[in-house]
Nucleic acid binder design. Structure first.
Length: 435
RNA sequence: GCGAGCGUAGCUCAGUUGGUUAGAGCGUCUGCCUGUGGCGCAGAAAGUCGUGGGUUCGAGUCCCAUCGUUCGCCCCA
């Protein structure tokens, strides 16, 4: 029985054209976050399973963790998210690191799920976190970074929106104001998460199931329909979390983030979030979903036995981003980072070596075709491989010290001396020869 | 964990109520063209119809199982 050529279920092979796209996305991420002073870190793919038990969402740990025992009997898991790992790393050097600490990473993460659109078993995720800032400036910065990333991918205004809420406000409204018990609170939280997704009638029916008093439904509606903080009912407006949200909105407005707004339905899956939370939504009807999000989790670092550390961060997955970019036609044409194939004519492989070395030294990325196929086949293959051009090298060129170069995009051809070729590498690559 | 659709050539797919040697387009290879690609013309190679059972005189087609894949639910990125 032949071996399968498929990649493992829910995981992807990255052929060079896929890798170019991945590099484009990663490079864009890096450029933006590094412009805010974030530094890259990394951690092992495998962690002790314990670090996920306390605060990662229930379903992820129970059903979606790649967990196993190693040969030494240790219970370990492939990371389903990066936040516990970075919290562990920061906790380990809690006293010696300089705050505010700005770190990012682009880990690959694994969750055992049924693959579907926008969700695979292995994905990559940009994670950024700022540690040691308790005030709203950290929340502001992180959301601003998210916004700048969307702009860096040329996402047009209106193609996405940033929805912001506060777990403290949700807690206050459900727990203190409506006096919901644990189960009601849990169910209500899950329900409002689906506010934008399900029919209003279904929402009403389910809400009335959960809420102990019928009139609470109307109160919930008012809160969910509040597109800005002034629309909130008076009894919520005075809560401290609203004051914080209000400061945050003002800061975002002043820094040009016009895609952000208050939305009480934002919940986030992870249990560790404990204050401001946000999600970035694709607004197109074909893909109306949460692309990524994050928030404040002041309690997580402290779980590692050190003084707690205020933290804000977010994670942005490559799969959902790619869906977004494809849908909005924002993917650039990416070419291989090779300048040319040098087509050797005749028995010149050995004699060509010093010339090739010189051209490479000068900065050209050159592949060599020393096969004995016919010339047209070699040109066809260079074109098929996506090469910008070819350089012909035979006895004639070697003895004259000239290069016949052909730009495959334009079909233009020119004979250049070695000096001219070296001097005009840029023009050569773009097909604009100088005479 | 639950539900639905789809698996036919390297790729995208067609294949009639079950009926001889299973087709197309693209791609590949050869020639037209011995140092010049993309277009054209002529020709060629390439498929145990995902796999295993079953029904039938006869299965790519119907049934069951299984694997793969896609989509939805749950959950989430």
């Amino acid at each position: 029985m032949a071996l399968s050529t498929h990649a493992y279920k829910g995981a992807r092979d990255f052929y060079p054209e896929d890798k170019r796209l991945q590099k484009y996305m990663f490079d864009t991420w890096r450029r933006v976050v590094e412009s805010f002073g974030y530094q890259e870190y990394d951690a092992p793919l495998i962690e002790p399973v314990d670090i996920y038990l306390a605060k990662t969402g229930e379903e992820i740990v129970n059903d979606q963790l790649y967990a196993f025992e190693d040969k030494g009997g240790r219970k370990v898991a492939i990371r389903p998210e990066m936040t516990p790992s970075v919290s562990r790393m920061v906790a380990a050097r809690r006293q010696e690191l300089a705050y505010p600490l700005r770190w990012y990473s682009i880990p690959n993460l694994w969750r055992y799920e049924r693959p579907q659109r926008g969700r695979l078993r292995e994905h990559y995720q940009l994670n950024i976190d700022i540690f040691g800032v308790a005030d709203i400036s950290a929340d502001h910065e992180v959301i601003l970074v998210a916004e700048r990333i969307m702009k860096a991918f040329d996402a047009p205004a209106g193609s996405y929106e940033i929805r912001i809420s506060s777990r403290k406000l949700v807690n206050y409204f459900f727990r203190d104001h409506l006096k919901l018990d644990d189960k009601q609170f849990h169910d209500a939280s899950k329900l409002i998460d689906r506010w934008h997704k399900i029919e209003k009638a279904d929402f009403e029916a389910q809400a009335k199931e959960i809420l102990p008093v019928e009139s609470y439904y109307q109160q919930l509606l008012v809160v969910l329909n509040s597109r800005n903080l002034d629309d909130l009912p008076a009894e919520l407006k005075d809560h401290a979390s609203v004051n914080e949200l209000s400061k945050l909105m003002k800061l975002l407005g002043e820094s040009g983030v016009d895609s952000a707004g208050f939305d009480f339905s934002v919940i986030r899956g992870m249990d560790y979030y404990d204050d401001i939370i946000f999600e970035v939504f694709d607004t197109s009807p074909e893909n109306n979903r949460s692309m990524f999000g994050g928030g404040r989790y002041d309690g997580l670092v402290g779980l590692f036995g050190v003084e707690p550390l205020p933290t804000v961060g977010f994670g942005m997955g490559d799969v959902t981003l790619q869906n977004f970019l494809e849908l909005h036609k924002l993917l650039p044409e990416l070419e291989p980072e090779v300048d040319a194939t040098v087509i050797l004519i005749g028995e010149v492989y050995e004699k060509a070596q010093p010339v090739l070395a010189e051209l490479r030294e000068a900065g050209l990325n050159l592949a060599v075709d020393a096969t004995e196929r016919k010339l047209d086949a070699k040109i066809k293959n260079a074109a098929k491989a996506g090469m910008p051009g070819v350089i012909f090298l035979g006895e004639e060129e070697l003895s004259n010290k000239t290069f016949k170069v052909k730009h495959l995009g334009s079909g233009k051809e020119k004979v250049l001396t070695r000096d001219k070729l070296l001097k005009h590498i840029d023009q050569w690559v773009s097909g604009e020869f100088e005479s």
